[in-house]
Structure formats: structure tokens, C-alpha cells
Design a protein around this nucleic acid. Structure first.
Length: 199
DNA sequence: GTTTCGATTGTG
DNA sequence: ACAATCGAAACC
């Protein structure tokens, strides 16, 4: 029996929350669901790669708010990316980097026109928001609210006891911090070259 | 007010 | 390997 993740679940350091989010289910109220298979932690003022590094701005204000809210940002003039605000250090969050489609797979596929291979439906931060229909309108969503359009669920599948840990993808500052985790061997993990790399 | 460049992706 | 595409935020 799936249960909505409670508010207090999010109140922990991003580097603990990130691997704990592996295998959790991200849902859209229209029935779309995906299992989180890849995440990255961003750690506020301690992390030069974090949007929140230099303190709150209009865009990053949500990162300094209560844990468990969605931080959605627009990047490269093209893509949306979704993060879960963490507790601990102010300005911390977990970037969701890849989902394994769970349901309704036909709807997920239709949200990604031109994609044939199932492993390309939601394997990347921009791809998964497109597949799930997440945009700036969903910024600040309270993921633990029973009435939220976007939610996070525990369906009984535990996080991997030994997640693969590696360096984060696509950043230039603080690039050596090993704050990326993924489900070993999962075909929906993004960034093929970094998929195996243990660090 | 102006400029830079990005927590990426799809195509070549 | 590289263009697409635009807004946030750094800088003047």
C-alpha cells in the first residue's frame, strides 16, 4: 500500500535525503508515475555549484523555505528541472535526475514526442519534467500535501542498500564533490558515461 | 542598463 | 561535436 511521504521525511541533510529518495515514486495527479533512480544533492552556502550558494534570490527563495517543497527552475532557455527542498543547511535541495516510468507509460511516452526508446523518456532532469508535465507552475508545490498535483510516494520498495555514488553532472564549480547517487544497473539513469563511474 | 552563461538536450 | 534559446543574476 503506497503512502505519501510525510513532511518530516524531508527534514534531513540533502546528502542523506538524496539517496533516501532513490526508488521513491514521483506522481502527477493525472496518473503519471515514475520511480526515482538518480539524484544529486546541492548544499547551500557550502556548495559553490548550488544556485543558493550566494544566499537567497527571488528564484532561490524556495530553497530557503520549509523542506518538502518543489524547487523548479528553467535552464538553457529550454528545460525545466525539479528539485526537492531538504532540511539541514539552509538552501539545500535534491535534484531529481532520472525516473523509471511506472505509469501511465503511454501518457509519459506521449509527453515526449519523437522518443522511441523507453530509456530516453525520463533519463535526465529536463526529460523527466517534460515527461511528467512539471513546469514553473509547480514551483513551491508542497509534495507532502494530500491535495498537491505533484507528490512523492513510498510504494514499499526500499532505497538500494548500496547506491552508486559519483560526481555530479554538468557543473564546473565544486565538481569534485561526490554528491550524485543512482540505482546500480538501472537502464533509465542518465549520462551513460558516468553511469558506471564509482567516482 | 547590459552582459554572461547555465544543475541540458537533440541532432549531426 | 555543437546549436538551440532565454531569463536570472552578476556586473557596471
Amino acid at each position: 500500500m503506497p503512502r505519501l511521504l510525510p513532511r518530516h521525511f524531508y527534514d534531513q541533510d540533502a546528502r542523506a535525503l538524496a539517496p533516501a529518495l532513490l526508488n521513491k515514486i514521483l506522481s502527477n495527479a493525472d496518473g503519471r508515475q515514475g520511480r526515482i533512480v538518480e539524484v544529486e544533492a546541492y548544499c547551500g552556502a557550502e556548495d559553490a555549484a548550488a544556485h543558493s550558494y550566494r544566499g537567497p534570490t527571488p528564484r532561490t527563495a524556495v530553497m530557503f523555505g520549509p523542506p518538502g517543497q518543489l524547487y523548479v527552475y528553467f535552464v538553457y532557455g529550454l528545460h525545466w528541472a525539479a528539485n526537492v527542498v531538504a532540511g539541514g543547511l539552509p538552501g539545500s535541495a535534491v535534484l531529481i535526475r532520472a525516473l523509471e516510468p511506472v505509469s501511465d507509460i503511454e501518457v509519459l511516452r506521449k509527453a515526449r514526442p519523437g522518443i522511441s526508446r523507453p530509456t530516453l523518456i525520463a533519463s535526465g532532469p529536463g526529460r523527466l519534467t517534460k515527461a511528467m508535465g512539471i513546469t514553473g507552475d509547480d514551483n513551491r508545490t508542497d509534495l507532502s500535501s494530500p491535495s498537491a498535483r505533484i507528490q512523492l510516494w513510498d510504494d514499499g520498495v526500499d532505497p538500494p542498500s548500496r547506491p552508486v555514488q559519483s560526481r555530479r553532472v554538468g557543473i564546473t564549480r565544486a565538481a569534485d564533490e561526490p554528491w550524485r547517487w543512482h540505482v546500480e544497473g538501472n537502464a533509465h539513469v542518465s549520462h551513460r558515461s558516468a553511469r558506471q563511474k564509482k567516482e
